[in-house]
Simulated assay, not measured.
Amino acid sequence: MSHSPGAADSPLGKSTVYADQYDAGLLFPIARAPQRASMGIQGQPMFFGADLWTAYELSWLNPRGKPQVAIAHIMVPAESTHIIESKSFKLYLGSFSGTRFADADEVRQRIRQDLSAGIWQGGPVRASVGVRLVAPEEFDQEPLQELDGLNLDRLDIECDRFEPAPDLLSSAQDEQPVEETLTSRLLKSNCPVTGQPDWGSVQIRYIGPQIDQAGLLKYIISFRGHDEFHEHCVERMFTDIWARCRPAKLSVYARYTRRGGLDINPWRTSHPGPMPLSVRTARQ
């Protein structure tokens, strides 16, 4: 019986031959809709945003065969129908390593075209992937910065729940609304295929009834035993906070440590506004 490709069909957790000749066919898209449906999201989500990727292991050959290197900043719109599975992304980028390209702009355009096609899977490309390459002479201009906001990790709490527990979330519905930015470095979840740990920091900006900080920190920590991709974890956080705390505005931004030369940093927001800067934290 045929089935739609999912994470179990991807290269993740399998022995792999690493290609060094450009091959767009290595990209493995996974549909967003099934996981969103499991969270109760049907049709158009209540959020929009982007997945901000950083690729640290990008290299190719110039026309004379001399290796070139760059760091790539990649923006995948959250409204796309598919995500790209991370190991397949790594294998795809690795396939550039033995291929000659005219210049860095040709590499950038190729990545943009291939990823845009992958995340829309044959449908109309309603929003293209953004790709920016950082050349070696610009590497020392790449900033390092922690997420700004009030640090929840200062709270002395007892933790005994390690699967997402939205009932831990609450807010002061009978008080005046506040505007706050709250952060934690205690986010951890696990790859749903390999079980490998995914370590991250999260920033929650909101306007609305004041969220109980101890409950929010316990909720963030409750992802510690949870198996789900980065993008889905952030969407689950957004959905639970939106439903339980009822803010007027909300954004959730997570920065996960890199694996395989890639970090993935999903951002989801309820309202239009500037995209967060894709600036790595110390752990990234």
Rank of each mutant, 00 (worst) to 15 (best):
H3C: 07
S4L: 12
A8G: 12
P11I: 10
G13Q: 03
G13I: 00
T16W: 12
V17E: 13
V17Y: 12
A19E: 13
Y22E: 09
A24E: 13
L26H: 01
R32K: 11
P34A: 09
Q35C: 07
G40L: 07
I41Y: 04
G43S: 03
G43Q: 01
Q44N: 15
P45T: 13
P45C: 14
P45Q: 06
M46I: 13
A50G: 04
D51H: 09
L52H: 06
W53I: 14
W53M: 08
A55E: 09
A55N: 04
Y56P: 00
W60A: 03
W60Q: 01
W60R: 07
Q68L: 08
I74H: 01
M75F: 05
P77G: 02
L91H: 02
L91G: 02
L91T: 04
L91K: 07
Y92V: 02
Y92K: 07
L93H: 12
G94T: 10
F96E: 01
G98E: 08
A102Q: 11
R110S: 15
I111P: 05
R112D: 04
Q113V: 12
L115D: 01
L115E: 05
A117C: 15
I119F: 05
I119T: 05
G122R: 03
G123R: 14
P124F: 09
P124D: 13
V125I: 15
R126G: 09
S128V: 12
V131H: 06
L133K: 05
V134I: 15
F139P: 07
Q141T: 11
E142S: 10
P143Y: 11
E146A: 12
L147V: 03
N151D: 14
R154D: 11
L155G: 04
E158W: 09
F162V: 10
E163V: 13
A165R: 05
A165S: 11
A165T: 14
P166E: 12
S171M: 01
D174W: 05
Q176A: 15
P177T: 05
E180M: 08
T181D: 08
T181E: 13
T183F: 00
S184N: 05
S184M: 06
Q196M: 13
P197S: 14
G200P: 03
S201E: 06
V202K: 06
Y206N: 00
Y206D: 03
G208E: 09
P209W: 06
Q213T: 07
L217G: 03
I220G: 01
I221T: 04
S222N: 11
F223D: 00
R224Q: 09
R224Y: 04
G225I: 07
H226Q: 10
D227F: 14
H232N: 11
V234K: 01
E235D: 13
R236T: 05
F238E: 00
T239W: 04
I241L: 09
A243Q: 15
R244K: 14
C245H: 01
R246M: 06
A248G: 12
L250F: 05
S251T: 08
Y253F: 11
A254R: 00
A254S: 10
R255C: 00
Y256M: 09
G260P: 02
G260E: 06
G261P: 03
D263H: 08
N265Y: 06
W267N: 00
P272A: 13
S278N: 15
R280D: 13
T281F: 06
A282F: 10
Q284D: 14
Q284H: 11
